[in-house]
Amino acid sequence: MNAVLHLASVSRVHGEGATEVHALRSVTFRAHPGELVAVMGPSGSGKSTLLTLAGGLDAPTSGSVWIEGTDLATLDNAGRARMRRTSVGYVFQDFNLIPALTAAENVALPRELDGEKGRIARRLALTALEEVGIVDLADRFPDEMSGGQQQRVAIARAIVGERRLILADEPTGALDTDTGEEILRLLRARCDAGAAGVMVTHEARHAAWADRVVFLRDGVVVDETGADEPEILLAGDRA
């Protein structure tokens, strides 16, 4: 099975000289169809950096990022934006909702940008909002919602349509235990249905929903659990 996401010896350096920060150091990482991977590590260890590189929101200083067999470096801006809209669902650590749009409009936006008819995009958006349990808030604006509700809108936006890769930065951060568990159930179901998921989390109990847990520290993968499953070993031989 080919990896949906493949980071090949990826490094990311911010700044230069004395202020240089090595956010990631030669990290190799894969996520396969049907697989949910959790990324854990102390604050500043490079988790968000890994995710933004995986989502094509930032480019590596060295190494390459492949999504479904395409090296992101070979795409122009428009191509990358298109890849992000169609293949990748991204849940930002700070939600990143557009304040002037309602919940449903926020969720529908990526579909509309991709040329879907407004009515169909809205229907898809409502389905996604239903899945995260807040369809009744579809016409509210972000500043009329609690943190946990906004987070669920952000998650709905990431799962709307057929995303092959779901990247989530602390998707349960603002949620209570029960709602957090619902979201994990949802991510888990998406992955069981064939998507690849990568989730950053501080919570061990949430990471435990993943097939594999990767530990980052100072920009390096220091350990991982579940890596020795035969299927993953086999898949790991390929790009």
């Binding site: 159930r185 109990r205 435990a208 929903w209 847990v213 530990f215 350990d223 659990t225």
Partner: peptide, 20 residues
């Protein structure tokens, strides 16, 4: 610490699988 954390995390994954 790191070895223990991985091992405990793996158990936590097992319990979670049993739970769901």
């Amino acid at each position: 610490i790191q070895r223990q954390r991985s091992a405990t995390m793996a158990s936590l994954q097992d319990y979670t699988r049993l739970k769901r």
